[in-house]
Design a protein around this nucleic acid. Structure first.
Lengths: 214, 214, 214, 214
DNA sequence: GATGAATGAGATTTCATTCAT
DNA sequence: AATGAATGAAATCTCATTCAT
């Protein structure tokens, strides 16, 4: 019986507690800084048990990360299906709103992703990061492809570059929900989720139509 | 004599070598993952010496980070002074070009900054991060304030939000120079620096005037 | 019901598989290096089961070892009975041939014996080792006693010393069948079993020239 | 500075104590059974120090083993030089006597060698074992080559087989000095070293009757 | 009777830090 | 001022063993 299977057989409640504590530890301290001792201490289980479930620290990190990624995909899938008939602006707004809501509910997951950007010591970092960026980029591209087909985009717009820009702004917007100080101390995102609708609308409008006087 | 003073008295060449190796280690492995052993091993100096110069690992990291920040500020100062008379589009282009050039020359410094976003174990992380974002945000705001004064911006544009968007796109653009895979594997930035002028022009045009068919 | 009884009640096929895998593990890695995890992993049975059969790691090792010893005794018994009428030279040759054949068929058992020579941590090691050496030594002594009775030996030959010498040479000859490199890389024993008859004849002739009545 | 160099710089007395305790541990418990904790406990030094000197457990074992091997070679070299003019019988006697004396003085070293025979988990075991057997075998061969040149050997004697036999008997004789019970409980070697001269003479006579020109 | 989850002691190894030379 | 030997806490990981199901 493999390590992963052993974990799978645990009661749902225990699995969730373990994932939650481990996500917290990794997202707060990074891969190298995270401590198995600290995790089992918080969980109140034996050190050996964690290694029965995941084999190594790498194994635990990978499990935590892919679990998080699945959650993100689930979320995006729902958004895409519900919004497939609307115009580009509405779909971007829906995506951002869903993303913000998700991140506020699971702030650790986003921070896990940020670890990937910088930490060379994370095993399989490159694979994980590439998979993630491709997933996000291709989602945006599919929205733009639809928009072009419907004639919503100016002719001169090159889709890869536009996708890059939209991805960047949306990603930073989401980052600001999870990482303190990313709004430069302006307190832009301290309120509850309803306050950010106006932000989202304005952001999408600026991206789509610019800021210059015409 | 304090630790910092001891470091200050070293020959310039040695100081540079120490900073360079330490930056490399921290930016690659993060704060927790970095190893003093590895640093002194690469440098070929005694472990005790490093502690004479910086007191603790924290002290070393802080010194490395603030040194990097000073370099970034130097760079931006030059850009600002040289470009103060141009219009918003030109100034953004100049900034992005200078940033890209800087990051390609000092890729480690940017990765150091990314560490700050995620690692709670970094001492004084919050202070450092806030200082950094404020510096960047205020730079963009000053560009926008000038543009409004000159009547270059549409009336409805709210400056904080616009600054946020510009900051986001530009930051991601710079990120893509330093972190592999951030361009989703499209190889957008593999060429040399002259290849990205077209990118920068298009990016700035999209930010300022949008992508939608008018 | 005792642990041993529980094992005894298992189907013959299963018992053999367990003994074979355990012998392999112990003979390869020594007592301390052997891992119960590895054994049950290879067997595909539950860890708890092994402890039901043998109680402890010690118990398993002791069982494996005495089982092996019984096999050796069985083999020698057959040789002794079949060869009781021949002269010393023929009986030594028969013994060596039977020994070589046995070791090629059960190489692990011989290596198990070698473990005993060195590993203080093996439980009851001294008892086991003494029993084994006595068994072997007395077998040789009995051959020599017969030879003296038949007048095959020179008068000056002291039987204990002669037994020691014969035991030594024969043991090393057998060792060379089981342990790679004991022939100093000459490849003396790489061929199949028929190739070693000449070796055996020559070895016995050299040994006996020293003790036989001329 | 490498680990080995660090050890080299220690005061002679300390180095000897460390080697002695480590040899004892390895030779008593085997590679896997030996415990770094136990070694540093006996030495009264910090665990980290041992790793500064030898890097890993493997490194420590290898150092201990090659140190032991050098001692053996030193011993043999002295014997060979002092005895080069004598006939085969005298030289074998000298070798055995020197070997017995050496083993009684350093019983651990011989037991270290026995570990090699059986333990697959010892790093570089095959290389070490082959080197050792070749060294021993070639020493015997050189004695026999000399003897043949001097016309001391019967024509029919094949040198490899004769070397094998001599090596075997002598090795077992030495083994009996270091491993209790190898004399089958007869107490043959319990006395002091002078008692074994008679043994040696008789052993050599028996061995050579088989190979010498009559 | 068989299972395998749980355990926690103990294994090897790394680390930042101190301090005598 | 520079060194690097010494340290011991803490890291990851393995292990034999127990016991409820």
């Amino acid at each position: 019986m493999t390590a992963a299977e052993r974990f799978h057989n645990l009661p749902e409640e225990k699995k969730e507690r373990i994932l939650s504590v481990a996500s917290d530890e990794f997202s707060r301290k990074g891969y190298a800084g995270a401590s198995i001792n600290s995790i089992v201490g918080q969980l109140g289980i034996a050190k050996g048990s964690l290694f029965q479930y995941f084999g190594t620290k790498d194994g635990l990190f990978r499990f935590v990360f892919s679990h998080a990624l699945e959650r993100v995909k689930d979320n995006l899938r729902v958004v895409r299906d519900n919004a497939s008939r609307k115009d580009l602006s509405s779909r971007l707004q829906d995506t951002l709103l869903a993303g913000a809501w998700f991140i506020r509910k699971h702030p650790l997951l986003y921070r896990l992703y940020l670890q990937l950007l910088t930490d060379d010591t994370i095993p399989f970092r490159n694979d994980m990061l590439l998979a993630l960026r491709q997933y996000s980029f291709e989602y945006i591209r599919s929205l733009l492809d639809d928009a072009r087909r419907r004639g919503e985009l100016a002719d001169h717009v090159e889709l890869n570059r536009a996708a890059f820009m939209l991805d960047a702004v949306m990603d930073r917007f989401l980052q600001a929900q999870a990482v303190p100080h990313m709004d430069a101390g302006l307190g832009l995102f301290d309120g509850d989720i309803s306050d950010i609708r106006a932000w989202i609308q304005d952001l999408v409008r600026m991206m789509l139509s610019g800021v210059e006087k015409s």
